[in-house]
Design a protein around this nucleic acid. Structure first.
Lengths: 255, 255
DNA sequence: GCAAAAGTGTTCACAGTACACCCATGG
DNA sequence: CCATGGGTGTACTGTGAACACTTTTGC
């Protein structure tokens, strides 16, 4: 790879964060308004450079999250990918490591030193052309949302969107918001309980808001879901004109 | 993220490659024997540093693959992850981007400039303690193999292990080798054909080696498989004492 | 009682498995 | 004719979707 004289080139290492949360049954992403060039004034994912040579990459991600949006204690950061094409950043060769996190109702973020403002935006809005994020952040966000959708099927991630304890219908709202579909409450009820170790009863307590009180659950011990929560069938989505349409994997309408 | 005086730190960017292929119905990985320090003489995944500031990361991966093992034309490199803990490389702060590739019977690799030798090793062997790869390459290889297993379920990746055209039982051998299980040929035959766009007939030609000639197929147009090839059931694996045992997702034995 | 949400039971269709059986070739 | 692997038909079984129905609360 190198002879003794040749010295490998350096690159600037950055982190970017896709932080997703649920607000009012819609999926939101944390964005900041950039306070410095380049892309000053544009919306972007929170992130920034490594502070020094020794800083761990995940640690840098947590630090930036705190500095730019005042958020601490975000539970789990999952590596999403690397974005390092030459030319993606006008400041030079910047390679960015993207992380994905998911959390229950997070507090209103506060603007930090390099960010003129931090805010939650619905992901559909953030992905429209009118929002146009800085750098290649639209791409990163798109990858992050897709990753979240897939993870919901095979991992116990959905409970991370909820609070300490939750009802089954609250958990259902997570799936509906992230997947953008409607699910049958009765079948969801059983399906989620049949996944062994996914959720466990949290005391005989009950909480209410409307009809019959619901049992409370908390996240179970397992990470990998079996059987998985499959997304293809049973999924019913709102059509543009308000009626319901079957979602098929091909994207067409089922016969 | 930075004030005007502060300059972000540089890191050395490397690439590592997990190249998988099938040899004699077993899954093999491409390894090199390191010809330079550190870890001189140890086995490692092929890889190396970016050549210059402007080089694309995937391009660097392809270049290293050619330089270290003489392999060109490896079809598709998929980003596997980033490995960048401080201390993973004694030469300084090295952040490595790992790629995964999968290919049909690749030629015998040739040793390159920095590699004393390049060779195919069965993955079970490469993952044992006795093989002990350099750096954190055991971890990367483990992640790569697991990724390949999962991708076989949901994507048309398996055809990439085969040649231009292949029979259905050849395709089955791919699944059996990567998953480490045995499948029922009759059911596999139909299942693989029911996944729309996965494989398409390749002419009325037939090829033979034993019994009745088999139809030839080639890779179809789709990337995502529907329905997916599920791995859980129907999977029968050889027990240590030779008899067959049911594989359950929990790893236990089915009742 | 009525509305609303939680939770249960039951039916039906279909997908996955197992396996009997037929087909096409080489020796 | 037999061995070998390719390919088809079919019965059984479990899971998911659909939906009727009961339970428990507030008003």
């Amino acid at each position: 790879m190198d002879d003794d004289r040749w010295v490998p080139p350096c690159v600037l290492l950055a982190v970017d964060l896709v932080i997703l949360t649920l607000r009012g049954s819609r999926l939101h992403v944390l964005l900041i308004e950039r306070g410095v060039e380049p892309f000053r004034g544009a919306l972007a994912l929170p992130g920034g450079f490594l502070r020094d040579q020794e800083e761990d990459i995940v640690a840098a991600a947590r630090r930036e999250l705190f500095e730019e949006a005042g958020l601490a204690d975000v539970p789990h950061l999952e590596a999403l990918g690397v974005y390092g094409e030459p030319g993606r950043d006008p400041r030079g060769r910047v390679v960015s490591v993207a992380y994905l996190a998911i959390a229950p109702r997070l507090p209103q973020p506060v603007a930090g030193t390099d960010a003129a403002g931090a805010c939650w935006r619905p992901v559909e809005y953030a992905l429209t052309a009118s929002a146009e994020l800085a750098f290649d952040h639209s791409r990163i966000l798109k990858d992050g949302v897709e990753r979240a959708r897939v993870k919901l099927e095979h991992s116990a991630l959905a409970t991370a969107f909820c609070g300490e304890t939750f009802t089954i219908s609250e958990l259902q709202q997570v799936y509906e918001a992230v997947w953008g579909v409607q699910l049958d409450p009765r079948n969801f009820y059983r399906k989620v309980q049949s996944a062994r170790g996914f959720i466990v009863a949290a005391g005989p307590m009950r909480r209410t808001e409307g009809g019959r009180p619901a049992r409370l659950f908390k996240a179970g011990p397992v990470q990998a879901l079996y059987p998985p929560m499959v997304r293809s069938a049973q999924a019913v989505t709102e059509g543009p004109d308000g009626h319901k349409a079957q979602v098929t994997p091909e994207g067409g309408t089922a016969p």
